[in-house]
Design a binder for these strands. Structure first.
Length: 579
DNA sequence: AAAAAAT
């Protein structure tokens, strides 16, 4: 079956053919005819199933006739991450190239001005992340009442990211006379509830996960002591024919560290996480897609949805916290029937996480040994060190001296010397990660020394030192206490300003309710705000908030007694909760 | 535990 039987027009079909596609994927085949009919669609599908084209193609067809008014987009697509939004925008570019549709991409991290200009000219397709869209809306730069097609993509991820209130608000701003397309990889009850609220008599389209990835992706799990993971990763990369690879870390901090470490070791590598400047994010991703960057170290911002062709490898530098993220991460390779390789590094402490992943994927990940880093060698090396002899390999020697020089805590060094070395860990051929020596006294001791280290630093008001030192990376130190205190003070100031803004807004909307609560809020932050409270006492009355000089009548009335009957023109009685 | 998203 070809695309031509789905009801799409010649211009769209031409663009599809130009892009090299001949056969629709199951979700495209099932959803496109219904979307063209104007039906709501509830799509249960992951990325990599052709979902994006599944809604962009028919949308282009529907929007081909008609024209957008200034600031009143005719369709709206909500995406959880900026990268996904940008990708959908590209999809419209690709498939809409024979149409004259205008589109706008509203994402954070880039300038408002350009986005406003585009909105003013009128857009047919608006692709947005929720925060920036609402920001534009509140500035009056965009109106949503003319939106005829609304797409909510990756709904479950929006839920994970706490976007649902924003999404609900946005949906409430869109006209009821609309067509809604709702996609989610999973359907937990909360998502089902949203779907029921947003959709009318939807056509449900469910697509099986892309063959549970097992068929096309070769998986492997190497158990490696935490502080040898970078070395292990380098060896794995070198041992493989890596065309291009995504390397996932659980933390942004570790993305930075690993990225710099790999760069230092001469790899062609980039980094990507949500704290990086948006223009840098976009450029890095673009260069990775073009093949200018071979390795991309990323946080889970890249775990889902990123559509990069021909990725040969995925490395999990950390076992993901959420087991389902494993599926998303390794789903970045082995796409469209091609073969891929996904290797995961687990530390001996990761037994639970590995077990959780294996439960989700319903199979055991085959254990692999890191080349030239097998258990025997590690044991040997540990023995050597215990006897005070030199260590094994050159590669490791490069890393060591720095570590010893900068080793942060005497206790820590001691624990290395007395044979409680982290290197002495589960053999790489262990059958499960849980086989890590939990009952081994060494692992217990290691835990203690690590605790000591962080405790000591907590006392100093400092963060524990990072493993980065070992790679000779010295520009990754935590900020000096003074600077970080200053930043924290600024952050607190911002937070409290936001709190009071929010309270003001609430008070405007519900003056009755909010009056008693204000006092309570102040009490709750008593410690922090004491100075301000003093000023309050000294400086002739409270600072002006909310009502300004105007005092509504109800404020000058006496505070009503408890349990006083509630007459309609009175404020509600003060309940125990509010008092 | 972490990451994502509006300054």
């Amino acid at each position: 079956m070809g695309f031509d039987l789905l009801g799409l027009g010649p211009d769209v079909l031409k663009a599809v053919a130009d892009a090299g596609y001949t056969t629709p994927t199951p979700i495209q085949e099932q959803a496109i005819p219904y979307i063209l009919m104007g039906r709501d669609v509830l799509g249960c599908a992951q990325t990599g199933t052709g979902k994006t084209a599944g809604f962009t193609l028919p949308m282009i067809e529907i929007l081909a006739s008609g024209r957008a008014k200034a600031r009143m987009p005719r369709s709206l697509i909500l995406e959880p991450t900026r990268e996904l939004a940008a990708q959908v925008s590209e999809s419209f570019e690709t498939y809409g190239k024979h149409h004259k549709l205008s589109k706008a991409l509203l994402i954070g991290g880039v300038s408002f001005d350009d986005q406003e200009k585009v909105l003013d000219r009128g857009v047919d397709v608006l692709i947005a992340t929720p925060g920036r869209l609402l920001d534009h809306f509140e500035r009056g730069k965009v109106l949503l009442n003319d939106v005829k097609i609304l797409v909510i993509d990756e709904a479950d991820r929006m839920l994970d990211m706490g976007f649902i209130p924003d999404v609900e608000r946005i949906v409430s701003l869109v006209s009821q006379m609309r067509q809604t397309l709702f996609f989610s990889a999973t359907m937990p009850p909360e998502i089902r509830r949203l779907a029921d609220a947003f959709l009318m008599n939807p056509k449900e389209v469910t697509v099986a996960r892309p063959a549970t990835t097992a068929s096309t992706v070769t998986q492997g799990l190497a158990i490696v002591p935490e502080h040898d993971k970078r070395e292990a990763l380098r060896r794995l990369i070198r041992s493989q024919e890596v065309k291009n690879a995504l390397i996932f870390c659980n933390r942004k901090k570790d993305v930075d560290i690993l990225y710099k470490s790999l760069a230092k070791h001469g790899f062609n590598v980039g980094g990507l996480h949500g704290d990086m400047a948006q223009p840098v994010r976009m450029e890095t991703l673009e260069r990775f897609k073009l093949g200018e960057i071979q390795l991309l170290v990323a946080s889970d911002v890249a775990a889902r949805g990123l559509d990069i062709d021909d990725m040969s490898h995925v490395f999990n530098f950390d076992v993901p916290f959420h087991p389902e993220d494993y599926v998303h991460r390794i789903g970045r390779t082995g796409r469209a029937g091609r073969s891929g390789v996904a290797f995961t590094l687990a530390s001996p402490d990761d037994g639970k996480l590995v077990a959780a992943v294996e439960r989700v994927i319903g199979q055991e990940i085959p254990r692999i040994a890191v080349p030239d880093m097998d258990a025997a060698e590690l044991d040997q090396e540990g023995d050597d060190r215990r006897r005070g002899r030199g260590r094994g390999r050159g590669g490791r020697d490069r890393d060591r001296p720095r570590r010893e020089r900068d080793a942060p805590a005497p206790q820590f060094r001691d624990s290395d010397r007395d044979g409680t070395d982290d290197l002495m860990q589960a053999p790489a051929h262990a059958h499960t990660a849980a086989a890590a020596p939990a009952d081994d006294e060494r692992s217990g001791d290691r835990g203690r020394s690590r605790r000591r280290r962080s405790e000591r630093h907590a006392e100093r008001g400092n963060r524990p030192p990072r493993d980065a030192d070992r790679d000779g990376i010295d520009d990754l130190q935590p900020p000096a206490p003074a600077a970080s205190e200053h930043r924290e003070a600024q952050a607190e100031e911002r937070r409290s300003r936001r709190r009071s803004d929010r309270d003001d807004r609430r008070r405007d909307e519900h003056p009755h309710e909010e009056r008693p609560r204000e006092g309570r809020d102040r009490d709750r932050h008593h410690g922090r705000d004491r100075r301000r409270d003093r000023n309050w006492d000294r400086d002739d009355g409270p600072p002006v908030v909310g009502f300004g000089d105007f005092t509504p009548a109800f404020l000058s009335r006496p505070v009503p007694q408890r349990r006083r009957p509630n007459r309609s023109e009175d404020p509600p009685p003060v309940t125990e909760e509010a008092a």
